[in-house]
Simulated scan of single mutants.
Amino acid sequence: MTTAFERFRNGEPAAFDQLVAEYTGSAFAAAVQVLGDPALAEEAVQDAFVRIWQRGRQFDPERGNERSWILAIARNAAIDLLRKRARIPERSIDSVPAVYAMRDPDDTWQAVLASLDGERINQALQELPAEQRDIIIRTYFQGQRPAHIARQLGLPEGTVRSRLRLALSRLRSSLAPAREVIEP
């Protein structure tokens, strides 16, 4: 069975409406996480879906899955909006699951995130080495890009990206029990 995204990429414009319905909740949650403002997040999500409409045929399934690609576009649209407004709000790690919990309760990923409370995420972050934890916080909670972080810290961008990759791998392992919610 083909997904709405595959049908859209194959030239079926009506599938785009289904794609929007399927991913709006997750895209909105990703944008709120970056922006901290639901009104701005709506604007970012709209921009993201315009980009998806324009670039949908550029998606390469060999490089990743459609969900990751769509949510990355939504997150990048939020970061772009944040930069346009020239402000980066401080976010509390404890508030992240609550942002996801306010969206569509049928979304599997929301169920996973709801099962992770802020304390568990904070604990997993505290288990990381300080340099990896700093990169994660700057990237995912402050919306900074690796190149910007590298300049700020005076490190090669490759080092920042390596630390980010290692930190994500450790977090994935540390938060693995949450996968049981989505795996049969």
Rank of each mutant, 00 (worst) to 15 (best):
S162R: 11
T159V: 08
R170I: 00
I149C: 02
R170Q: 07
R145G: 06
L166D: 05
P146K: 15
I137M: 06
S174T: 08
S162D: 06
Q132Y: 04
I135V: 15
Q152P: 01
R172A: 14
R151Y: 02
R133V: 05
L155C: 08
T139L: 10
R161I: 03
R161A: 02
Q144R: 12
L153F: 14
P146W: 13
S174L: 13
L168W: 01
L171F: 06
Q152C: 11
R138D: 05
H148Q: 15
A167H: 01
Q144L: 11
T159C: 00
R138E: 07
I136F: 10
R165P: 01
R133A: 13
L166R: 06
A147L: 11
R163M: 01
A167D: 01
A150R: 08
S174N: 08
P156R: 07
F141G: 05
R151Q: 12
A150I: 06
E131F: 04
R163A: 03
R133D: 08
I136V: 15
P146M: 14
A150D: 06
G143K: 07
E131T: 12
R170Y: 02
P156A: 10
G154F: 11
I149A: 05
L171I: 05
H148C: 00
S169H: 06
R170M: 05
I136R: 10
L168F: 05
D134P: 01
I137A: 11
S169V: 00
T159R: 09
P156F: 03
L168T: 15
D134G: 00
R170L: 02
D134C: 05
S169K: 08
I136Q: 11
P156I: 00
R145H: 15
Q132I: 07
Q132D: 13
P156G: 00
A150Q: 04
L155S: 12
G158D: 13
V160K: 02
S174V: 01
T139I: 10
R172M: 10
L164T: 00
P129L: 02
H148K: 14
A130T: 02
A150W: 02
Q142F: 09
A147C: 11
Q152M: 15
Q144E: 12
I136W: 10
R165W: 00
Q132W: 08
L153E: 10
L164A: 09
L164I: 04
Q142A: 13
S169T: 03
I135K: 04
G158R: 12
S174R: 09
L166G: 03
I135A: 09
Q144H: 14
E157T: 14
D134L: 14
R172G: 13
A147K: 14
A130K: 09
